[in-house]
């Protein structure tokens, strides 16, 4: 494998966003790019990352390899990279280390690190392609604010999407709160629009602790996409460049 990333910042931010949710992960490398799928310890949430080969230049993967990496170790090494360093990942066949180099564009500074790999036999879950009943695209900062504000009142949030819009409601010991958003197009700045597409009304309840955790990825994209259908996990997707993405799936809570 040889994969060169123009900006180390993307990998730094992706790892920073998931390192508190999952610990040991397989980075599955093949000719379409680098994928990662992992569940949190309680098997309530699933992270699915895909860094397409187009996000790298150059990208070469002669044989499929799984790089078992502890994210705490990877975080320690990535801390040594500046956001605008050129980052290159290298690994041989049946590797026992993954090699990372950070080149600073202006000065002739080159750092090189090897991280020991682990054998991680992670069950790979089949994520079915779903036609979601409701898709909401909104500023990632707005979603972060909603989850943060409501998590102060309760550990669960009910998300209800109708043709009027989407409503986040929570009730807790000190009281209750709700945030309602309607379809809104910001003519000056499309990144601030709220787009809602709905084929049928949905209403589900989720853990706010996990949603707040997912919002660590807000730095990756100024928009976030929420996909909902009744009785299936919520999809929270942060789109990256070249159709790469970081997706979080969260199982719903049932029964009030």
């Amino acid at each position: 494998l040889e994969a060169r990333l123009e900006q180390a910042a993307m990998l730094k931010r992706v790892v920073d966003a998931i390192k508190d949710l999952v610990q040991d992960c397989n980075f599955d490398c093949n000719d379409s790019g680098i994928a990662l799928q992992a569940m949190d310890n309680s098997h309530v949430a699933l992270v699915s990352m895909m860094l397409k080969s187009e996000s790298f230049s150059p990208f070469r993967c002669d044989r499929n390899i799984a790089l078992g990496i502890n994210l705490t170790s990877l975080t320690k090494v990535l801390r040594a990279a500046q956001g605008d360093d050129i980052l290159t990942l290298k690994a041989e066949d049946a590797p026992d280390v993954v090699n990372l180099t950070f080149e600073s564009p202006e000065s002739d500074r080159l750092s090189e690190y090897d991280i020991k790999l682990m054998d991680i036999d992670q069950e790979h879950l089949g994520i079915p392609d779903t036609e979601y009943a409701a898709t909401i695209t909104l500023p990632s900062s707005e979603f972060s604010r909603i989850t943060r504000d409501l998590s102060a009142l309760s550990e669960s949030v009910a998300i209800e999407c109708t043709k009027e819009g989407v409503k986040f409601t929570c009730t807790g010991d000190i009281g209750n709160g709700s945030v309602s958003l309607r379809q809104h197009t910001n003519v000056e700045n499309d990144a601030k629009s709220v787009d809602i597409s709905l084929t049928e009304p949905v209403a589900l309840t989720f853990s706010l602790k996990y949603l707040v955790n997912f919002c660590k990825a807000a730095g990756l994209s100024d928009r976030v996409r929420l996909c909902l259908s009744n009785e299936v996990p919520l999809l929270v997707e942060y789109g990256l460049s070249n159709n790469s993405y970081l997706r979080f799936y969260l199982a719903p809570k049932i029964g009030d």
């Binding site: 309680s42 309530v44 089949g126 049932i254």
Partner: peptide, 14 residues
């Protein structure tokens, strides 16, 4: 109190 489900209930092993 609503009860939390696990992801495996929805995403089976392929």
């Amino acid at each position: 109190r609503p009860s939390q489900q696990t992801i495996g209930k929805f995403f089976g092993n392929p």
